[in-house]
């Protein structure tokens, strides 16, 4: 494997006195998709927050392109090239669709992904650009959240449960964009409850249980039964 673009090494973190992650390690290969699975409370969102510095972590625990970034404050990560599509989307409700994208573009990196290109990827967003971001349907809001990550022109996007609360047909629409995103050179870690979907989508799989990595390897190496067993910690 080529040198990982993002690697997590022995990451332990948590909320106050409550430790939620115990020595988690994983490597994200350049231009690849890593599927992160596990039951509720397994530590997937916690891992994202720790990578982004929203929870405590130490300098050597996170590396980006070989450089330790565990001491880099959250606000600098978009500039380095790591952004998140957060669980629940968390769009800025006082900002229009376009403004949500423009804000992210202004504070991220310059590159091929522009607000205009996001409107080409998701034409419905172009039509509704002037509307309040939270007035859109769930699926459209998720498109804004993904677009907001793209216009920062990152190397890595952390997708947190982008299908949550969406109708199945809408989920397909949203996921349809992922190969194109990946093809543009962006690597991704995808947290997803639907194990089948992750197996089809991801190159690598990591399964967390109670804050520990219980399974890790190329997506094709595991049967569904193996994954389900790891998922429930059996």
């Amino acid at each position: 494997m080529a040198e990982p673009i993002l690697s997590v090494d022995g990451l332990s973190s948590g909320y106050g006195d409550f430790q939620a992650l115990f020595g988690v390690s994983l490597d994200l290969a350049p231009k690849s998709i890593l599927g992160l699975v596990g039951s509720n409370g397994a530590g997937k969102s916690t891992l994202f927050k720790a990578i982004l510095g929203l929870l405590p972590r130490a300098r050597e625990m996170v590396r980006f392109q070989g450089q330790p970034i565990g001491d880099v404050p959250t606000r600098r990560l978009a500039q380095i090239g790591i952004v998140m599509v957060p669980e629940g989307r968390r769009l800025f409700r006082s900002l229009s669709v376009e403004e949500n994208l423009v804000l992210a573009a202004e504070h991220g990196r310059k590159g091929a992904w522009t607000v205009q290109r996001v409107f080409e990827l998701f034409p419905i967003l172009g039509e509704k650009r002037r509307q309040g971001a939270t007035s859109l349907s769930g699926g459209q809001q998720q498109m804004v959240a993904i677009g907001r990550a793209l216009v920062a022109n990152p190397e890595v996007i952390l997708f947190d449960e982008i299908s949550l609360g969406l109708a199945p047909i809408v989920v397909n629409d949203v996921y349809a964009a992922l190969p194109e995103i990946n093809a543009s050179g962006i690597s991704a870690i995808v947290v997803e409850q639907d194990v089948d979907r992750v197996r089809r989508l991801a190159h690598q799989l990591v399964c967390l249980n109670e804050g520990r990595v219980v399974l890790s390897g190329p997506a094709g190496d595991f049967t569904k039964a193996q994954l389900t067993a790891a998922y429930f910690g059996e």
């Binding site: 959250t74 606000r75 978009a78 998140m84 804000l103």
Partner: peptide, 22 residues
Amino acid sequence: RAGRAFRATSDDAETAEAMGVD
């Protein structure tokens, strides 16, 4: 640009920070 950052930060400071807003 400053006004967008004002409103975004007021809405959700944590997410704004993750988008690169100081």
